[in-house]
Design a protein around this nucleic acid. Structure first.
Lengths: 144, 144
DNA sequence: CCTTGTTAGTTACAAAAGCAACTATTACGC
DNA sequence: GCGTAATAGTTGCTTTTGTAACTAACAAGG
C-alpha cells in the first residue's frame, strides 16, 4: 500500500466505512450461511428476536431499520426453517407476534457465541481506548 | 432508546459497523444518483479513476475490492454516459486502459466537493481525537 | 354507521448483485 | 512450437434487493 492509498481511504469516510463493514459482514456471513443457510436479513431478525424476545415485525423494522418487505421475507424464511413461530395478536388482527422456537433459540445461542469470538478477534489488535472510541463513534453515526 | 438497545449495538461490531456504513452510503447516494444517475459501483469506479488517473479494470478490482463483473458493468455504464473512455493496451491486447473524459473529470470534481462537505458534516460532532482514532481503526479494519 | 385515512404485512414486478461459464489473449513448461 | 494453464474482461442466468401496489384490519370525524 502506497501513500496515495492511505490518502484515498482517509479522504472519504463513507468509503472506508463501507470497506470495513463489508469485510466484517462477509466474514461473519460464513457462519450463519454455511451452518444454517441463513441470509443476512434472516440473521438480523433472528438476532433481534433472540436478544429482545417476542415482538411484532414492525418493531424489528424500527429497531433494525430494515424495510418491511425484507423483514417479511426473512420471517417467512425463518418460519420455513422452523426457527421462528407466529401467533395472532389478540388486540389487533392485522399484526402478529414473532418469537423464536426452541431450535431458533439454540441457533441464536450458537451464533451469539461465534459473534462474540468474532468481535474479540476483530478488535484484537486495538487498544482498549481505540475500541471504546470506535464503539462510541459508530453508535452515534448509526443513529439517524 | 433503552439499556438493552445500547447493549445490543455495543454487543456486535459488524452490526453497528453496517448500520453506520449503510446510513452514510444511502445519504451520499442521493448526490450521484439524482445528479448523474449513477450507481454505487459507478461512483466508486469514477472515484478511483479520478483520484489515481488512468488504469486498467483489474487495478480497480484490486484497489477497491470489487468483483470484475461489477466493474465491467460499471465501466460500460460510465462509458455510455460519456464519463469514461477506453483505449487498447499496446502491450497486451486482452486489457484496456480506462480514463475519465473531460466531463468525467468535471463530475468527479463536483462529487469530490460534495464528498468533502459530507465528510465534514458527518464528523462535525466528534473531537479531533475521535476522528483520528476512527480513521485509523477503520483503515486497519478495511485491510484484509 | 360510513367515509376517509392510516397501519401491518404480503405480493408482484423491476433493478441490481452474485456466480459460473465463456471468449480472447498471453505465459509457461517441456 | 505446442499443449496447458493463467489472465482480462464479458455475458447469461440465478438469487436478492428495492419499489410500488395491494389486502385486510383498525381509527377517527362527522
Amino acid at each position: 500500500m502506497n501513500e496515495k492509498d492511505v490518502f484515498d481511504l482517509q479522504g472519504f469516510l463513507p468509503y472506508i466505512l463501507n470497506q470495513a463493514a463489508e469485510r466484517a459482514s462477509l466474514e461473519f456471513q460464513t457462519y450463519y450461511k454455511s451452518r444454517y443457510g441463513m441470509l443476512r436479513t434472516e440473521w438480523r431478525v433472528l438476532f433481534h428476536l433472540g436478544r429482545y424476545g417476542r415482538m411484532q415485525a414492525k418493531e424489528i423494522c424500527q429497531r433494525a431499520r430494515i424495510h418491511k418487505t425484507k423483514v417479511s421475507r426473512a420471517v417467512s424464511a425463518l418460519e420455513h426453517k422452523r426457527l421462528l413461530s407466529r401467533t395472532d395478536l389478540p388486540e389487533d388482527r392485522r399484526g402478529e407476534y414473532l418469537m423464536l422456537t426452541t431450535r431458533g433459540g439454540q441457533v441464536f445461542g450458537d451464533l451469539c457465541q461465534e459473534a462474540q469470538r468474532f468481535d474479540a478477534n476483530m478488535l484484537r489488535d486495538f487498544t482498549l481506548e481505540e475500541q471504546t472510541v470506535l464503539r462510541r463513534v459508530l453508535i452515534k453515526l448509526a443513529q439517524f
